[in-house]
Design a protein around this nucleic acid. Structure first.
Lengths: 132, 132
DNA sequence: CCGTATCCTTGGAGATACTG
DNA sequence: CAGTATCTCCAAGGATACGG
């Protein structure tokens, strides 16, 4: 039976045309992960985010924030002062999601050694292939 | 304080060079999500996966499975019969992760309507921009 | 049936410089 | 400070056909 995995909402992320599939697609981005995790504790300014997300380019940061704003996960507030001040915070929906994403981040940190080892083993086996 | 978000493992996914960052990068793929969710209930053959993951190309399916195998999340078993039979199943580590990923999938299905609405609103506002 | 090889297109993503 | 504008590059990812 296939229905064992069906959600009770009539949505099915395995189907290419299902709206939930596009949601999954949007979430499948490391910057989306990190931005949402970064905002979990409260609102942050653009520059604070830029410093926290090591290696993100201004372009990607803005892009990611716009996507999240468009999808109702992040709210943007502009203070009309000089110099400009813009703050970002999670919406209810975003906070709801942040808990889950943070578990994934936490899992990544917990199991990074396991995966590093697995990768090392895979490389070692591959070297075996070469010798053999 | 920045340490509020630090894990007790010494890993920090926000740092570009941290191994956990590369793990997050690997997980940030819709096919990785879906393959792991698909295998959650038990082992599946290549063809079964191909049918379940609507729209995946043979190339991406194989690629995704190889990455997951390399990282110790999926185990591959070959039966030396004709026609060939190959089965995939989650390792312990993979099963551990599958619970979390499935929550994300479930969340995507639950909140797909909310996000669809948010996107519609965003488009509407953008149209307003054009008129104004 | 399982997978690889090939070709090709798109857009993700970095670097940088500039404007309000 | 926040953000846009370009330019560029490369790899993700799709389509397809073939091989073991």
């Amino acid at each position: 039976m296939d229905s064992e995995d069906k959600s009770p909402f009539g949505y099915d992320a395995f189907r290419r045309t299902c709206p939930s599939h596009t949601v999954l697609e949007m979430l499948a981005s490391k910057w989306v992960y990190l931005v949402i995790c970064a905002l979990r504790r409260g609102r942050l300014r653009n520059g604070e985010l830029a410093r926290k997300l090591e290696g993100i380019s201004p372009k990607m940061l803005t892009h990611t924030l716009r996507v999240l704003e468009r999808d109702g996960l992040v709210r943007r507030e502009i203070f009309p002062v000089i110099p400009p001040r813009v703050e970002y915070e999670l919406t209810e929906l975003g906070q709801n999601l942040a808990g889950l994403l943070n578990q994934i981040r936490s899992w990544s940190e917990q199991h990074a050694p396991d995966i590093k080892d697995a990768r090392a083993r895979a490389v070692a086996e591959h070297e075996g292939d070469l010798v053999a």
